[in-house]
Every structure is written in C-alpha cells, then in structure tokens.
C-alpha cells in the first residue's frame, strides 16, 4: 500500500524528481492532446447548456414555438437534447480514452519500465 507521503501529507513536497517518462516528448504530446480533447468537450458542454439557459433567459418564445401541428414545442426536444448531449459527450470521452489514450500511455509506460 502506498503511503500518504506521496500525497505530501508531511508538508512540503520538495521538487520531487519525476520519472524519465515525464520528459519523453511522446508523453508530453499525449498529455497535451488528451487535455485539449477534454477541454474541448468541456467547452462544447458549457456552450450547449448555457446556450439553453440563455435561450430561456432571453428568448423563451423560441422554445415555446410548436413543432408540427400538435402541442409539442421546440423546447421539448431541445431540453431532452441537452440531457442526451451530456450522456453522448461523456460516452465520446470514455470511448476515446479507452481506445486511444490508455493504450498509448500503457505502451510508453512499458517502454520506460513503469
């Protein structure tokens, strides 16, 4: 079991030496790509949700507009779509992380014997 010293529970974690892997350029690129991907998805989620909230705040008439002949309004698919988009974005991230980023990191780790 790893001890809390790793978590700096003793106070100052003085500049710990990081493994050589951290200085591997391929590792740096992987982390950069992965984090750009995660932040992009974050931006998309924020845009969808706050787009929806701003629509409610300023143009609720758009959401109250019926689609087709019946009483169902545009707001229904849009609102449910916000929920579904959250699930879909989550799935996209998990699939990509499992299929692309994890194997790449694993092979780098193996190469460095970690």
């Amino acid at each position: 079991m790893v001890d809390l010293d790793q978590a700096g529970a003793e106070g100052a974690p003085a500049a710990k030496p990081v493994p050589e892997l951290a200085r591997d350029e391929r590792y740096a690129r992987l982390v950069q790509r992965r984090s750009r991907f995660a932040w992009s998805l974050t931006a998309v989620m924020l845009a969808i949700y706050f787009g929806y909230i701003l629509l409610i705040a300023f143009r609720r008439d758009i959401l109250a507009r019926p689609i087709g002949e019946g009483v169902t309004t545009l707001g229904i698919p849009v609102g449910l779509g916000v929920i579904l988009s959250g699930i879909v974005l989550t799935a996209i991230y998990v699939i990509r992380a499992n299929r692309v980023y994890d194997p790449e990191l694993d092979s780098l780790r193996k190469e460095h014997g970690l």
């Binding site: 932040w39 949700y49 309004t73 707001g75 929920i83 959250g86 989550t90 991230y93």
Partner: peptide, 28 residues
C-alpha cells in the same frame, strides 16, 4: 416545462466532472 430546466442543470455537471476531475481525483 420548467421542471425540465432543473433536470438539465442537475445532469450537465457530470460531463464536466469526467473531463476535468474524475481521473485526476482518483490518481491524486
């Protein structure tokens, strides 16, 4: 319809947790 606005807000925090925090929380 207003009830749906609540629901969306309660859901959309989850993707953010995943993209930014979940794995890092576990690792740290």
């Amino acid at each position: 319809y207003d009830g749906l606005i609540y629901s969306t807000g309660f859901l959309v925090g989850w993707p953010i947790i995943l993209f930014l925090l979940a794995e890092r929380l576990r690792n740290l």
